[in-house]
Computed example of a mutant assay.
Amino acid sequence: MVADTRTSHSPAVNPRRERTDAPAGRGPSARRRTTLELTGKYVVAVVASVIAVFPILYIVSASFNPNGSLVGSNSLFASFDLGNYVELFTSPAQPYAAWFVNTLVIGIVSSFGTVLLGALAAYAFSRMRFSGRRLGLITILLVQMFPQLLAVVAIFLLMTAIGDIFPAIGLDTQLGLILVYLGGALGVNTYLMYGFFNTVPSSIDEAAKLDGASHARIFFTIILRLAAPILAVVGLISFIGTVSEFVVASVILTDPAKQTLAVGLFQFVSQETSSNWPVFAAGAVLAALPVVVLFFLLQKYIVGGLTAGAVK
């Protein structure tokens, strides 16, 4: 009887084993689906990289082209000549070195001023409660809906009138252009830093106040250090926008010795009879170097600053 009982129970199939073996049967199809998804992602990444990198390679190749047009640059790096770079710094009609220095000075000062003023305004909106606070935030957001290009005529008339009273910040002055850039970039950067400051716990401020710290001490010694990612992002965005801006700079700066790279390089291709695109490409390559260097220096702050400032 005991043997018969064991024999009768031995052919029984464990249902738990069936459930564990079932996913194994679907394994190849799941792996195939995962492989197809990864392949599609890699294909999209490669295509996007080619689209993004090809214009850069073309401009770099054109900067080494000894011909005076872009026709000979269709074959990438078919020729290698540094004559275009030499012409940038030796041409007396186009002071490229002065343009480069002017761009760096205007970009650095504008970026620093934008970060400082925007951080002060964002700290006030984030930590202090005063009448008109909500209206001010809404106004800052609404003002950014209108591009600065719409105010070019008003800016020109305003700078002309200011120049009659204060010539140092009027028309055809780099300081006046910096002030225009500060006013144009203050709104969106303030709102971006306001969102980041809200992620900093207010208990840190309260603990510092118990120790006798003032608002200024809290801001400069605690908040700015904690907000380093968003400050780096705002500074980088402001610097890139200042270096590449053309319309406002071309309206305010008329003296060739005071112009920026965006305005000065246009002279190489603005004349139909003497367009020199390879020299323009060489100047554009050199103009992109400060932005690339600054991007790599601030790379570790960029992702954290953008994501943290965008969730609020």
Rank of each mutant, 00 (worst) to 15 (best):
T5L: 15
T5E: 14
S10K: 12
P15I: 04
R16S: 11
R16M: 12
T20C: 00
P23A: 10
T34F: 13
T34Q: 15
E37C: 03
L38N: 10
L38E: 09
T39R: 15
Y42D: 05
V43A: 15
A45Q: 13
A48N: 08
S49R: 01
S49G: 10
F54W: 11
L57H: 04
Y58A: 10
S61H: 06
N65G: 07
P66T: 06
N67V: 05
G72E: 11
S79E: 14
N84V: 04
N84R: 13
Y85A: 05
V86A: 13
Q94S: 07
Q94Y: 15
Y96W: 10
Y96H: 02
A98Y: 08
A98I: 01
W99T: 00
N102C: 02
L104A: 13
V105Y: 03
I108H: 01
G113F: 07
L117G: 02
L117I: 09
A121H: 01
A121L: 11
Y123C: 00
F125K: 02
G132M: 09
G132Q: 09
R133I: 01
R133K: 14
R134K: 11
R134F: 07
I138S: 10
I138Y: 13
L141D: 02
L142R: 05
A154I: 08
T160V: 08
A161E: 12
I162M: 08
G163H: 07
D164A: 13
G170K: 05
L171Q: 08
L171P: 01
L171C: 01
L175K: 07
I178R: 03
Y181L: 04
L182C: 04
L182M: 09
G184L: 10
N189T: 10
F196D: 01
N198H: 10
T199C: 01
A216N: 07
A216K: 11
F219A: 03
R225P: 06
A228C: 00
G235L: 03
S244Y: 11
A249K: 08
V251E: 02
D255F: 03
A262W: 05
F268D: 01
S270I: 02
E272T: 11
S275H: 00
V279M: 10
G283N: 04
V285W: 08
A287I: 02
A288H: 01
V293Q: 04
F295H: 05
L297G: 09
Q299V: 01
I302Y: 14
V303L: 12
A308Q: 13
V311I: 14
